[in-house]
Nucleic acid binder design. Sequence first.
DNA 1: GGCAACAGGATTGTCAACAATTATGTCGAG
DNA 2: CTCGACATAATTGTTGACAATCCTGTTGCC
Lengths: 230, 230
Amino acid sequence: MAVTALKAQTAERVRGVAATLEEEIVLGWLMPRERLIEEELAERLDVKRHVVREALAELERVGLVERVPNRGAFVKLLDPVEVRQIYLVREALETLAAEQIPLSAPDRLLSQLEKIQGVHSAAVASGDARAAFRANMIFHEALFAACGNPHLVELIQTMAQKVHGARSITAASAEHLALARDEHLGMIEAIKAGDRVRLVALCRKHLGPSRDAYIAAAEARVARSKPVTR
Amino acid sequence: MAVTALKAQTAERVRGVAATLEEEIVLGWLMPRERLIEEELAERLDVKRHVVREALAELERVGLVERVPNRGAFVKLLDPVEVRQIYLVREALETLAAEQIPLSAPDRLLSQLEKIQGVHSAAVASGDARAAFRANMIFHEALFAACGNPHLVELIQTMAQKVHGARSITAASAEHLALARDEHLGMIEAIKAGDRVRLVALCRKHLGPSRDAYIAAAEARVARSKPVTR
DNA sequence: GGCAACAGGATTGTCAACAATTATGTCGAG
DNA sequence: CTCGACATAATTGTTGACAATCCTGTTGCC
């Protein structure tokens, strides 16, 4: 994913690397507990080790990777309790935002959302999980940005990132992707209709599947292997 | 846990520097728009430049400083609109947390809060703004941590940090400190009495003064510098 | 007098070598 | 055969030097 500019300063490259790693985690290409070696990533992503280092620090702050001093970084394995807590907060935040999106929304917002959703639907149709993931993120950002409070949007994104590690199940499932697509379309309809109650309800409902799928999978995993890996 | 060890790894030292800078901003020792020079800070805080660099990056992420590539870092000047938005989110988050604090609270929590508040009250009495600030932060962390959702607590702290730059007015005012102290005591009482409504109301009210003081000051400043927009 | 080009200094950004730490493999003693 | 000490390799952490960039004051030209 070559970046556009010939000269990008470190900060931007760090974000790029972090975003790439994030994607690879969401798509299940990097698995939980997998070790992330700085030099290896530096070579693979064609970037200096220092940049990878900072990117890993950022992902640690977000909660996608774990880092222990002198030992390195790993993809974090989320436990169900944590996931539940995070989704609880997400629900509160997204509800708050959805309640502040101005209905009778500007046409600009609607056409923007429809355009983004077009990309998303196409990705879902062609089974391109990566493209679907990207379009999905853009859709939600655009949707919540309409609430007019950038700090709230930032928080929503932060919390969404936190559970990206728990999404490899749904992010690659055609079934789940199709459901997400339909719900997006429903949100657009709700905005069009000026139906706030329905919009908020949809946002809430939208969070459910990926949370439940992960929790179910995690609990099944725990049941399967008795001893706590340490 | 070793005492402030002779060997602390960079990550911890970064946090330390960031915390120090944060304090100096809150206390008004570093003023908005003031330039923060890496080498200078490195020498003053007895730390390598690289550490200062990372600390500044962290404070930028939080929103306390602004950084432009190749030009350096400045203490960010918050505009009133932003401050209002942030406080709106803070109110929502802290309300959510306060609603989840278990009433009939464990004695452990109460005695902990009372102990912390003892330190805070003492600091207020002796006019030690720095100590008061520290105790204040600890008080709120302990209070909200009781909600049982660490991710929510993290968000609350993040949002609190964002407006630290807007708090130099109240952080050094005896009047405001005394008010904060009384409100803290009120919260403890409310928990003791199992009065959730009162607790939530107090948390809400507690946010008001520093927000209003800053907005008033900022708007006065704007009015002064921009003659007559009638 | 004003303005543009230009040096000089100050500050930030990049890098690669070096040091410190931890994991891994080997060997000998019991 | 198992255990533990030791040597070795792999990886992360730290540092200082160097390069790139930007601000400032100055000079020379119109």
